[in-house]
Simulated assay, not measured.
Amino acid sequence: MKFFKHIQNPFFFLALLTTCFSFAQKRPVTHDPVVAKQGDVYYLFCTGPGITSFTSKDLKTWTQADPVFAKAPDWALTVAPGFNGHIWAPDISFHNGIYYLYYSVSAFGKNTSAIGLVTNATLNPTDSNYKWTDQGIVIQSVPNRDLWNAIDPNLIFDEKGTPRLAFGSFWTGLKMVKLNPDLKKIAQPEEWTTIARRDRKGDLEDSEAGNAAIEGPFIFKKGDYYYQFNSWDYCCRGEKSTYKLMVGRSKSVTGPYVDKKGLELAKGGGSLVIEGNKNWYGVGHNSVFTFDGKDYTFMHGYDASDKALPKLIVKEVTWVDGWPTVKPMD
């Protein structure tokens, strides 16, 4: 989520995100969506107060549900002074009978950030075992120590079952780090990889994100390849949003990931998957999941008829010559 430094009025944007939409809707107000399916219900989680959530039976009509957190974690204010309860860019996985929901706490345009983890045995709020339990901080970035930003997490397992967390926004790009088997902390000795980056101005203070506009990694395994999706340019600016979705692939989860031309994503490469048009602005920050034998990507964008609010976009992914393809925005 996000580099809000260039938003003229970020607090107006945040106020919009707090609006309650409890009725069924085709395109709910959504930012940075991820989805899991339990039984016959799809559960969507996205940026918002306490982690906003929605449910659906058909991936078409969505109803808002209770947030994950009734109140933000107590540690959030110590990480990000000025934190206002909006939790960014969740990531959902089901592993060994438990749902793992990673999330981001940060301040606008700064790397005073941390990725936390909350777990649950079920996503069904009517189940007696339903309870979100916060596991605390997994990774934290600190200005003047780290030239990376601990937001936008995504959990991925390699072919041996080793867990790694991809994450990052602006600064020196997107990172991947090996986790402990319990998925709660960085493994020792530490194993770090830069999986994607764009050029960053060299004369910036460590606390400034700069113009290296890349964020939101999501790794999806298909066949022999791991596909890294990420978003270039700027979100959160209504009709001025320039977000676009890019991709590269690798036979190793840690890379190097390369685009269709063979250029490494860690050296500025990336092949376009989808971007906005005259009807939709700033399409990006996606996730990819397989449901009932079909691959889907979930992302957000700004409908030209309602420029102020990011909306959910769901598209089926097809594969052409080993590369993900989606239909352009209508």
Rank of each mutant, 00 (worst) to 15 (best):
T193W: 12
A150M: 10
M299C: 05
G248T: 06
P256S: 15
K71F: 05
N277K: 03
D259P: 12
T63C: 06
G276Q: 04
V79R: 00
V283M: 01
R249C: 09
G216A: 15
N211I: 07
I156R: 03
K315A: 11
L101Y: 01
C236A: 09
I92W: 05
L77Q: 13
L123Q: 05
P256H: 13
P28C: 00
E264K: 15
P189G: 15
H6R: 14
T242A: 04
D158P: 07
Y99E: 05
H285M: 04
S169Q: 09
R197G: 08
D158L: 09
K5G: 14
E159N: 13
F69Y: 15
S287C: 09
W88E: 02
N230S: 14
L117G: 04
P181N: 15
N154K: 10
L44H: 08
L204C: 11
H95D: 08
S241R: 02
A304Q: 05
L44G: 09
M246T: 05
S241E: 06
V317N: 03
L123W: 05
F108I: 11
D321M: 04
G216M: 04
V34H: 00
N129S: 14
P49Y: 00
Y257D: 07
G276M: 02
V34S: 01
D259L: 07
F13H: 12
A70K: 14
E191A: 15
P181T: 11
C235I: 00
V68G: 08
K184S: 15
Q228F: 09
W280T: 01
V138L: 00
G50N: 03
K278Q: 12
K160C: 10
L101A: 02
L263I: 11
I313D: 01
F45W: 07
G270C: 10
F94A: 11
N277H: 01
P189Q: 15
T78K: 15
D199R: 13
I137Y: 08
V79D: 02
A76R: 08
P181Q: 14
N9V: 11
V258Q: 12
D206M: 09
T290S: 15
K315F: 04
K260P: 01
Y226P: 09
L101R: 05
N230A: 11
N211R: 09
D58Y: 13
S141K: 03
V177F: 02
Y103R: 02
T194N: 14
T112Q: 11
Q188D: 14
I115D: 01
I92C: 08
S22I: 01
Q8C: 02
I274W: 00
A65E: 03
S113E: 03
N84S: 12
V35S: 02
F298H: 04
E264A: 14
D74L: 10
V177D: 04
W192T: 12
S128D: 12
A15S: 14
A213I: 01
S93F: 06
H86G: 03
A89P: 06
D158A: 10
F108A: 10
F289V: 12
V177A: 06
L165T: 11
M1F: 06
E215Q: 08
S241T: 06
D127P: 02
P217W: 02
A213V: 02
W171Q: 06
D74K: 14
